[in-house]
């Protein structure tokens, strides 16, 4: 169960965070789906895929307005679809008597190309030459100061647009950083396939091939996700998105106010007052029932200092209690 409000609020967050994964799925699908079968037993395969999709994804009734829930279901579908397409590719390859190393190499090269493309695209933005800036008239007007009696509103919208642009730039940085992870994973997978470590068990099923690919991706991602660089980029993209949303809220409130509707700020203010009143009521009730809380302890926080001296002393005191 998910609150409707959060489902509606979430669109931008999802679109930013799933961007990389969308492209990851898409690259594999484009490659494996390129030679989609159209007739014979392979058409049945395609039909099965379609059934799988319809059963498990967007056809579910009652999900209108819950786009985020639907997106999660689409991931379910995509995960299955990509793997099926990979199997299909190998299956077809066997019919064409294509050597196995060649099939693996084709897959690796396609992934490499796609990830490299994403990195290059972002590098253009980083060099100060945003590819969209020259062709986007809004970008030009957004940097103009507002004039006349609507000056404030013009400034608000300009501000909103600039924040959107900033978020887009940070989002591209994020995608590019994740593409580097993809490229490194491809390189490592290629190394593993052509020069497996001594004693490594051979991959004797398609599932094992896929599993190894996932293991390598996960390993490289986990190491990168703990770096200062990732922490910085992740923080920047989230903060940029939130700055945009905050400005969006300001403008939405102004529009609501024009239509004589209650604004979010007003409702929040009411909630805040109610919450404060509830606290006051609870304290009064406690006082009336003789359970008034003691005055707050005014003491410093000696814990860190104490803890620093503590382990050695306490170890001796605790005897056999610790495992």
């Amino acid at each position: 169960m998910t609150n409707t409000s959060s489902a509606q609020q979430n669109g931008d967050w999802f679109s930013s965070q799933k961007q990389y994964w969308d492209s990851w799925f898409e690259q594999q699908r484009n490659f494996f789906g390129a030679a989609a079968p159209q007739s014979g037993p392979q058409a049945q395969w395609a039909e099965l895929l379609k059934t799988w999709q319809n059963t498990l994804s967007g056809q579910t009734p009652g999900l209108d307005g819950f786009g985020d829930v639907r997106q999660f279901q689409q991931y379910f579908t995509r995960a299955g679809e990509n793997y099926l397409n990979m199997m299909q590719q190998f299956y077809q390859g066997t019919g064409q008597a294509k050597p196995l190393p060649e099939m693996v190499q084709e897959w690796v090269e396609s992934l490499q190309k796609a990830f490299a493309g994403q990195t290059n695209f972002s590098a253009m933005g980083q060099a100060g030459k945003d590819p969209f800036a020259a062709i986007d008239p809004l970008n030009f007007f957004a940097s103009m100061p507002g004039i006349g009696y609507t000056r404030e509103k013009q400034e608000q919208f300009n501000h909103l647009y600039q924040m959107w642009e900033d978020y887009q730039a940070k989002s591209r940085d994020y995608t590019a950083s994740m593409s580097k992870v993809g490229l490194e994973a491809v390189r490592k997978f290629q190394d593993y396939v052509t020069n497996p470590p001594e004693g490594a068990a051979p991959l004797t099923s398609l599932k094992e091939v896929y599993g190894k690919w996932v293991d390598i991706c996960e390993d490289i991602y986990a190491r990168y996700a703990m770096t200062e660089e990732y922490t910085r980029i992740y923080g920047e993209v989230v903060n940029a998105l939130m700055a945009f949303k905050k400005q969006q809220n300001v403008i939405t409130d102004e529009l609501l106010d024009q239509f004589n509707m209650p604004t979010r700020a007003e409702v929040d203010s009411l909630h805040k007052r109610v919450q404060a009143l509830r606290g006051d009521v609870a304290e009064l009730k406690a006082a009336l029932s003789g359970k008034a809380k003691a005055a707050p302890k005014k003491k410093a926080a000696p814990v860190a200092k104490k803890a620093a001296n503590k382990p050695a002393a306490r170890k001796t005191a605790k005897k056999g209690n610790k495992k």
């Binding site: 609150n3 489902a7 979430n10 995960a79 896929y210 996932v214 991706c217 996960e218």
Partner: peptide, 30 residues
């Protein structure tokens, strides 16, 4: 918090999935 009000559960979920994304978003369903 100022932008979102409450923090959506889906946002929390997405964060947790991204701790092991390849496994939790794809391989698990395979």
């Amino acid at each position: 918090v100022d932008s979102m009000g409450n923090i959506p559960g889906d946002l929390m979920n997405w964060t947790f999935l991204n701790l092991k994304p390849y496994r939790l978003i794809a391989q698990k369903y395979i």
